[in-house]
Structure formats: C-alpha cells, structure tokens
C-alpha cells in the first residue's frame, strides 16, 4: 500500500509546533505536513497522504541508478 510520490520542498512554515511544507509535485504546488524534522527548501521528500514521510537520499539515489545501469548493460 501507500502511494508515495517525490516532491521538492519549496517553503516551510510553522503553525505552533506543526511544520507545514509547501511542496511541488509534478504540475502542482500543495501544502503538506512535515513528518521529518529540519527539512529545508530544496530538499526532496516522499509525500504520502499529505505527509512528508521520508527524505530522498541523493547519494543512495545515485547509487541505485548505477546499479540499474550495470544490471542493464552487464549482460
């Protein structure tokens, strides 16, 4: 389950202790709840049901692209 989509953090704001993020998902901009501490604009997150549940790790992203590349070409 649990459709999650990558989104770019554009802005962060606080409502009391709650952190609200303005994120860009495809052609739209939407406010979502932050489920991760200390996010900054420019970071990428996975958004599920209006909550950012996880950062996208740039290093690991590069890694998996390499893995795929290898697997795709090695044969």
């Amino acid at each position: 389950m649990c459709l999650g989509v990558p989104a770019e953090v554009l802005e962060t704001r606080k409502e009391g202790e709650l952190v609200i993020l303005k994120v860009k998902m495809g052609g739209v901009v939407k406010e979502v709840i932050s489920g991760i501490p200390d996010l900054k604009p420019g970071e990428y997150v996975i958004v599920h049901a209006g909550v950012a549940i996880s950062r996208i790790d740039e290093k690991e992203l590069k890694e998996i692209l390499n893995v795929w590349e290898e697997l795709g070409s090695l044969y």
Binding site: V5, M25, G26, V47
Partner: peptide, 13 residues
C-alpha cells in the same frame, strides 16, 4: 503526455 501532468496524476494514483 507532459511530465507535469503525468507526475501530478501519479501523485493522485
């Protein structure tokens, strides 16, 4: 299909 459209619809499933 444009990326913006695909990504937005993906986000909504």
């Amino acid at each position: 299909i444009r990326d913006e459209v695909r990504q937005f619809l993906d986000a909504l499933g």
